[in-house]
Design a protein around this nucleic acid. Structure first.
Lengths: 219, 219
DNA sequence: CCCACCCATGATCAAGACCAATGAAGGCAC
DNA sequence: GTGCCTTCATTGGTCTTGATCATGGGTGGG
């Protein structure tokens, strides 16, 4: 009941709209569950309440790159895309941890979109934000070499203490390269004193050095 | 007067909405004019009436890649993005030929978005379509090698007779590589009998061969 | 006829993909 | 504790792709 209360973004909604959404039952999905895969039709608008979802493009040969991630309170742009434009999913979404989410059926979604300014605002703000991130991704992939991408990721995802808990394989997927390359790059960064690499963890030692790398991404 | 008549997509609009739009005066921009550049604030929603606009991401070092193109009747998603999300432009748009366009001011745009279901529908359909194309672009860049990208472009842009009038430099920008590479690849395709390369023009000779390349993009 | 633009080609070089083998740390069962 | 297994990481080596520099030839318009 009233799961909308747990999603801060939804607080600005009109009461009737919230009521309609609250009638939907959240769904629990286990870790590593595949929420959707390429080719499937979009069934509804997805709002993640708890947990974490990663959306990947899968290439032939099994390589995949992380398009974006969905945190609690956020929605999945692929779904929006499909509902508005009618396209099928072209990526794969998997829950990286046990996740709770709500699926707003297509008809309700379109109805709300038409009638609720607040809902519209939320949906489109999220849409725009994601889109922005995707353009960023294109830019990154086009113009930054792996080392710079790696530095950017470390700076971006490290916690306040300058620590990043990610396995090399995860990093590789996030920046779209092979694991070995990440290993080598990390090694170089470590030699240069920019970071300290541990098992499943990276500590920033020289933030400025990483920032310099990001600032000069010349391929 | 009544330029909305010339944009088929706008025919489905409510009469009042069309009337409001028709009050705006189209603008003429000369060939090679820069419509906007990275960092600029978004002034309004752009609808191209006539001509052709290319939107590029510019990297350090001058390299740039074609994000998408705007044909008559279409709008520029970067503008939509900025108006809804508040972000500045992150790409550069240039008119490739003399172009006529309409700029819907921000306030009117947001107002129409709120009040006109028809306008909303058009804007978001266009948004979704572009977004789809961008995902396609990411996929292409990630998983297709240059040869496959080249083949795809040839198939996609050739006219009914199987002829493509593009200079190698243009092709290079469109698929995000260097001109020399295009030259070499074209040469190989020509040797293989898939195409015939002439000055500023390419003729498809073996469509199936190109399609096979696109189908098997393994990096 | 000359000057832009377009194209071909060669040489070099770095990045990164891919394959393979090994080491090292942690978790678990017993 | 000991042994075993899984996950994570390191290292080496090979191979392709494609970026870049350089140079020369061709073509067409003014």
């Amino acid at each position: 009941m009233s799961w909308t209360r747990t999603a801060p973004a939804l607080n600005a909604l009109e009461p009737e709209t919230r009521a309609m959404l609250d009638r939907l039952a959240p769904v629990e999905v286990p870790e590593a569950a595949v929420l959707f895969s390429p080719g499937q039709a979009v069934k509804g608008y997805v709002i993640v309440l708890e947990g974490h979802v990663g959306v990947h493009l899968i290439g032939p040969g099994g390589r995949d790159i992380l398009l974006y991630e969905v945190a609690p309170g956020q929605s999945c742009i692929q779904s929006t895309l499909g509902l508005i434009g009618g396209a099928d999913y072209s990526a794969e979404a998997t829950a990286t941890v046990p996740t709770r989410l709500v699926l707003v059926p297509r008809t309700l979604f379109l109805d709300l979109l038409d009638r609720s300014p607040g809902f519209r605002k939320i949906v489109f703000a999220a849409f725009a934000e994601r889109m922005q991130a995707m353009m960023q991704l294109i830019e990154t992939m086009s113009f930054m070499r792996v080392e710079a991408r790696l530095a950017a990721l470390i700076l971006d995802r490290a916690d306040a203490a300058g620590t990043l808990e990610m396995t090399q394989a995860e990093i590789a997927r996030a920046i779209g390269t092979a694991r070995e390359v990440v290993s080598r790059r990390l090694d170089r960064l470590a030699r240069a004193g920019a970071i300290r690499a541990e098992r499943g963890r990276i500590r920033i030692r020289d933030r400025a050095a990483l920032e310099a790398l990001v600032a000069n991404p010349a391929v």
